[in-house]
Design a binder for these strands. Structure first.
Length: 468
RNA sequence: GGUCCCAUCGUCUAACGGUUUAGGACACCAGGUUCUCAUCCUGGAAAUCGGGGUUCGAUUCCCCGUGGGAUCACCA
């Protein structure tokens, strides 16, 4: 029987989460779900100074929005200090950890000296011969046994690690909290984590981790080192400075969580076919961590926009209606559900994200101010005399008025009007569309008139005639 | 500077060493669908970083350059 797959997302609560962190969480979540395993959340709050109030809750809000649901209660490292101490004691007893006798100024001096000599800084070059007994007030350091490794990484493949990258790193800080380097090893083991997914920034420390696993006599989990998401300029890791947004901003702008997951999963991963749009279930079925690209991928929000539109178009009208509830223009406040659904049905295919809904639909709920530039700036209509436009609108009004205002009758009335007037659709339809919407763009004419209703349409045409 | 990683259209990517005139998608351009915007359809432009090998044959394997990234914290 094989061990149950268990993955984790282990963010530090030091600010908001952006796409980079979420993608790591997504990959870990997908690995768990596709193996009927578990996915757990661990808050790495071992740096009190950098902790940001509320970020633990924020992290959970992000995961909830995206339905990256976790199993068990979230684990907080700050509540497990005793456990780290026990592991530390084991290392001390085994002669694999020692108290750091130097002040931080002294260590800093070593570092600067190494820098000046253009050598990498290695603390172990200054390893004290007779370190004092650890009394909780000094940092506790790992006593490394430098060696080289060749290990398989799920994403990177075979990676060689040289002993120059292995050092006596700090296990427990002088404030009594463990470092990430120590705590995550202990926790992953204690929690039974089988697959670790994390960013490339940890790759350089990986050899230290292998060394520590050996010292602790712990079997290392499978490691999947994922490349960073690059800034849109492509020259460096995406950061807040490059416009990386709080993931919940996308929720506010009306992106679908499944579209966000689709976008992030296919940023650096492809299933080998030509499929671009995936449901979450398909991602669980088809995702393969070993096929994730080794190099970083640039963040391109235009692609997210396209994927979001594709997911929106795949939604049933009822589903879409439920999801856009908070995005209607304020003018729609008193509109009834049936009317709003009809409007939504007309704009569904041109909606890219929900925050666009107001500008796309406002004229369905309220009379927009007359905008004569829509006609004076129209490439066809601007050539017409005002009197001709008035006449056309008057005729249009008459023939529209004679229908029962069903889309079908409106359509045939409009068609007949084309014949009678001998005008092109580009002229006649544009004129009616502008008169009834006062907008530069709108859905198809006949269905729009139908949804707007007789009273509104006729009144708006009258107003346009009067204003010409 | 040391260590490690990476390298296909502008972007995301596909291509058991041969079926490839390097495929798809986004973005872009042009045309079509009874108006606009959008959708949809058709077409277009657009890439294997350079140099050496290995091989009958290299996008694919090896080496050297070049370029890019990560890291070298009592941060994660």
């Amino acid at each position: 029987m094989s061990t149950k797959v268990k993955t984790r997302f282990a963010p530090s609560p030091t600010g908001f989460l952006h796409v980079g962190g979420i993608r790591t969480a997504l990959f870990a979540w997908l690995i768990a779900r596709q193996n009927q395993g578990e996915f757990v959340l661990r808050i790495e709050d071992t740096d009190q100074a950098r902790e940001v109030e509320g970020s633990s809750q924020h992290i959970q809000d992000c995961l909830k929005w995206l339905s990256l649901n976790w199993d068990e209660e979230p684990v907080y490292q700050s509540q497990r200090l005793d456990m780290y101490k026990q592991y530390a004691q084991k290392l001390i007893d085994a002669g694999r950890a020692y108290a750091d006798p130097y002040s931080s100024q002294e260590v800093q001096a070593f570092r600067e000296q190494a820098q000046k000599e253009k050598r990498p800084f290695l603390y172990r070059n200054h390893r004290p011969e007779n370190p004092p007994k650890w009394d909780d007030t000094q940092p506790l350091r790992f006593k490394a046994e430098p060696c080289s490794y060749k290990k398989t990484d799920l994403v990177m493949g075979e990676i060689g690690y040289s002993e120059e990258s292995i050092d006596d790193f700090i296990l427990i800080k002088s404030d009594g909290f463990p470092t990430y380097n120590f705590a995550h090893i202990v926790d992953d083991h204690e929690m039974g984590i089988t697959h670790v997914v994390r960013g490339q920034e940890f790759l350089a420390s990986q050899a230290n981790y292998f060394n520590l696993y050996e010292a602790l006599d712990i079997k290392a989990p499978q490691i999947a080192t994922v490349p960073p998401i690059l800034s849109p300029q492509g020259n460096k890791k995406l950061s807040k400075r490059d416009g990386a947004k709080d993931i919940l901003e996308y929720q506010k702008e009306g992106y679908l969580p499944e579209a966000m997951l689709n976008f992030l999963a296919t940023l650096g991963w492809s299933d080998g076919t030509e499929q671009e749009v995936f449901t979450v279930d398909e991602l669980i079925k088809k995702f393969d961590i070993t096929k994730v690209q080794k190099g970083g991928a640039q963040f391109d929000e235009r692609r997210l926009l396209w994927i979001n539109g594709a997911h929106i178009r795949n939604l049933s009208l009822d589903d879409l209606y439920a999801k856009v509830a908070t995005f209607w223009p304020e003018e729609a406040e008193d509109a009834n559900e049936d009317y709003k659904k009809e409007v939504l049905g007309l704009v569904q295919e041109r909606l890219k994200y929900f925050a666009e809904l107001p500008e796309l639909t406002r004229f369905f709920f309220a009379d927009l101010p007359l905008n004569l530039e829509l006609i004076s700036g129209h490439k066809q209509l601007k050539k017409y005399e005002t009197s001709d436009l008035k006449e056309l609108l008057t005729k249009a009004k008459e023939s529209i008025e004679a229908t029962d205002f069903s889309t079908e009758q409106l359509q045939s009335a409009l068609n007949k009007l084309l014949e009678e007037t001998g005008e092109k659709p580009a002229v006649l339809f544009s004129l009616i569309r502008i008169a009834t919407t006062q907008s530069p763009a709108s859905p198809e004419l006949a269905p729009s008139l139908h949804v707007l209703g007789k009273e509104r349409v006729l009144q708006r045409i009258d107003q346009q005639i009067a204003a010409l």
